[in-house]
């Protein structure tokens, strides 16, 4: 009884700590970013370009870069991940599912920089050739590679939620003469909306938060990208690049705005998808 209460307290403490740290970080960013707000530059930042030589520190291009790269990555990755997860838990037979599962788990352990490196040598030239212009370092390349990077997370999440669909539903469908694909489309996927949405949020969070791939592959141009074949800079890459160069200037201060955006982005995403997941679950499928 006593140890139980102790464990409970310890766990409570741990939970409290993580909440406190999250809140503290947010507070820290707001306080340090405050001088921008009073200077009147804060809101202009979100709409203007990044022209440090003219004293204009807008981060609109980076917001656009982050959003386009992350969302494209998810768009590329979701169908592939769904297919893989389906092979692992529903459609595959023989040794294939187990092998695939092991491979995917292994992929989650590969350091991001390895992906980036492989991307520079394999993917970037391909895209360069296909596009017929530019360096190949562009939104498309970064999104494709990021799609590969976030796929394992999604696959594991998806296949777990597929595997937890009640056997009785599967048997019922099977007994009515459903083919494996029909089982997948009509029973398995509709029954796993919660898992699917959580997987996508997690992956989206990873895509928004990833720094290295964007830094290595996306080209880091500060101009507003006009198409997916143009280079772009993400918020995270921007933070990394500016921090590496500078420490106390207005330029540096704008980073806190980037941080706040990333922070809010994640929060909104999580809340949003929770809502969607819950709504889906309540609806009939």
């Amino acid at each position: 009884m006593r140890t139980e209460r102790l464990v409970q307290r310890l766990l409570g403490l741990a939970a409290g700590c993580s909440v406190a740290v999250t809140l503290l970080i947010f507070g820290f960013m707001v306080i340090l970013g405050l001088p921008l707000a009073t200077g009147g530059t804060f809101f202009r930042m979100f709409t203007s370009a990044w022209l440090p030589h003219q004293g204009v520190y807008g981060i609109a291009p980076m917001v656009a870069g982050t959003l386009s790269i992350a969302s494209l990555a998810v768009v590329f990755s979701v169908p592939v991940s769904l297919g893989c997860a389906a092979l692992i838990s529903v459609l595959g037979s023989g040794p294939l599912p187990a092998l695939l599962h092991r491979l995917v788990r292994f992929m989650t352990g590969i350091p991001t920089v390895v992906y980036g490196f492989a991307g520079i040598f394999l993917l970037v030239p391909l895209v360069r050739e296909w596009a017929g212009r530019g360096s190949g370092m562009c939104i498309l390349s970064a999104a494709l590679l990021l799609g590969v990077l976030i796929a394992p997370t999604m696959i594991l999440f998806f296949s777990d939620s597929f595997a937890s669909v009640p056997r009785t539903y599967l048997e019922a469908a099977e007994a009515l003469g459903a083919t494996p694909v029909q089982k997948l489309l009509h029973v398995v996927i509709p029954c796993s909306w919660r898992g699917l949405t959580s997987g996508v949020v997690l992956a989206l969070g990873r895509a928004v938060g990833d720094t290295l791939i964007a830094l290595m592959i996306a080209g880091n141009a500060t101009a507003m990208p006009g198409s997916v074949l143009e280079p772009a800079r993400t918020l995270t890459a921007h933070i990394a690049l500016v921090v590496a160069a500078d420490f106390d200037s207005l330029e540096f201060r704008t980073l806190f705005a980037c941080g706040i955006i990333l922070y809010l982005c994640t929060t909104v995403m999580v809340i949003f998808t929770r809502r969607i997941g819950a709504a889906w679950e309540q609806q009939r499928w």
Partner: peptide, 17 residues
């Protein structure tokens, strides 16, 4: 075959539809 030979299970298992 399963279309010709239908099955009812021990525990009622309607889909959540």
């Amino acid at each position: 075959l399963r279309r010709k030979v239908g099955m009812v299970f021990q525990k009622p298992n309607p889909f959540p539809k």
